[in-house]
């Protein structure tokens, strides 16, 4: 084989690998909404919600319970990633990267602030108050923020085609989001705190992707995202959970009760699916760029709807189906991009 053909083949392989990672991310991410929804009806979280709601009202109770669920989610994700790094023999690199706090770890800790307390907490709030399908599709808007930030911040190129794809995906997201909202407005009761959660998810993940891209270009993705979850665990277990306990919420008594087989199983399931969705997400960025990685990863919205339908039997509204179709179409507009345009992702 001659040089030119080999070059073309190699570039193609790199790009298809990047898209493959992004697609795996979508599947794992979609599955995550199953344990994420189920965990709300399991003890101790079910009981905790009831107890706090009696004294502090539904809204406060929802947020505080979501905090504990998100903290456990972060813990199981971190454990899953530690196993992953062990398999890849990357503990040495983990230590080396952690020591370089100033140049690169700080980006992961910053990413964990937007990913954890903003995006993941928001998702659990949306799941608890409105439902898994809504939580999934609400966050579909995050690539707007991610791509725009990546463009202005470190000059990542967004080709015309990629931009069209992103716009179509967003239209799909709006259709799904708007459909539910209109029905609820008609019924006269809008669970606004759930919608706030949905917005937090979209904004948080968009910002996280752009920040992580900045740390990611000088660190290994497997190591980088593990550090990101170490950061999130510090934020939850060392800062927020103790503060809530001091304020008077029964955080620890319910946290201890989480150690029962069924609850643990669901939490571990959440940790594994979410951990690997992140592995795939971060791996796709250096190969196809933050904007595209996030765009294809967006297929998770559709995956989540399918999984929720299969496991819970919830039949989606027509707006959800139409929006889902738009998301697929948008992702394929990006997918069929000419390989040549992707050779360098940044302007010189």
């Amino acid at each position: 084989m001659d040089l030119k053909a080999l070059k073309k083949q190699e570039s193609k392989r790199k790009i298809s690998k990047g898209y493959m990672w992004a697609l795996f991310c979508a599947v794992f991410w979609g599955i995550w909404y199953l344990p994420g929804t189920v965990v709300w009806v399991l003890n101790p979280f079910d009981e905790m919600y009831g107890v706090i709601a009696e004294t502090n009202g539904d809204a406060v109770s929802l947020v505080v319970t979501a905090v504990l669920i998100t903290a456990f989610n972060a813990l199981t994700v971190m454990l899953a990633l530690m196993v992953w790094n062990g398999v890849l023999q990357k503990f040495g690199e983990l230590g080396r990267t952690l020591k370089e706090f100033n140049p690169c770890s700080k980006w992961f800790f910053l990413a964990s602030i937007f990913g954890g307390p903003v995006a993941i907490l928001g998702s659990f709030m949306a799941m608890g108050f409105i439902g898994g399908a809504f939580a999934a599709v609400a966050a579909l808007l995050y690539p707007v923020i991610g791509s725009v930030l990546a463009y202005y911040w470190y000059g990542e190129k967004i080709t015309k085609r990629a931009a069209i794809g992103i716009v179509v995906i967003i239209l799909g997201g709006i259709t799904i989001f708007g459909g539910g909202l209109i029905t609820e407005l008609g019924a006269g009761e809008v669970p606004w705190i759930g919608y706030l959660g949905g917005l937090m998810a979209a904004a948080g993940w968009g910002i996280e992707g752009a920040i992580a891209g900045k740390g990611l270009d000088i660190a290994e993705p497997d190591v980088g995202l593990t550090l990101r979850f170490v950061g999130e665990n510090i934020i939850w277990w060392i800062l927020i959970v103790p503060i809530l306990a001091i304020v008077g919420f029964p955080m620890y008594s319910f946290a201890i009760q989480a150690f029962e087989p069924l609850t643990l199983l669901v939490l571990i399931f959440a940790g594994i699916t979410f951990g690997f969705c992140y592995v795939c997400w971060y791996k796709s960025f250096p190969l196809i760029g933050v904007g595209r990685g996030q765009g294809i990863g967006n297929l998770y919205g559709l995956c989540a709807i399918i999984f929720i339908f299969l496991f819970f039997g919830d039949v989606p509204q027509w707006t959800i189906l139409l929006g889902g179709a738009l998301c697929v179409a948008g992702s394929f507009i990006m997918f069929t991009e000419e390989a040549g345009e992707l050779e360098t992702l940044r302007g010189e």
């Binding site: 084989m1 001659d2 040089l3 080999l6 070059k7 790199k14 990611l216 270009d217 000088i218 290994e220 993705p221 250096p286 190969l287 360098t344 992702l345 940044r346 302007g347 010189e348």
Partner: peptide, 18 residues
């Protein structure tokens, strides 16, 4: 890692051979 650095725009691929 080198490929990632290159696609991140920090290294430039200047020559290839089989």
């Amino acid at each position: 890692d080198i490929i990632e650095l290159a696609s991140g725009g920090m290294l430039k691929d200047v020559e290839q051979k089989v």
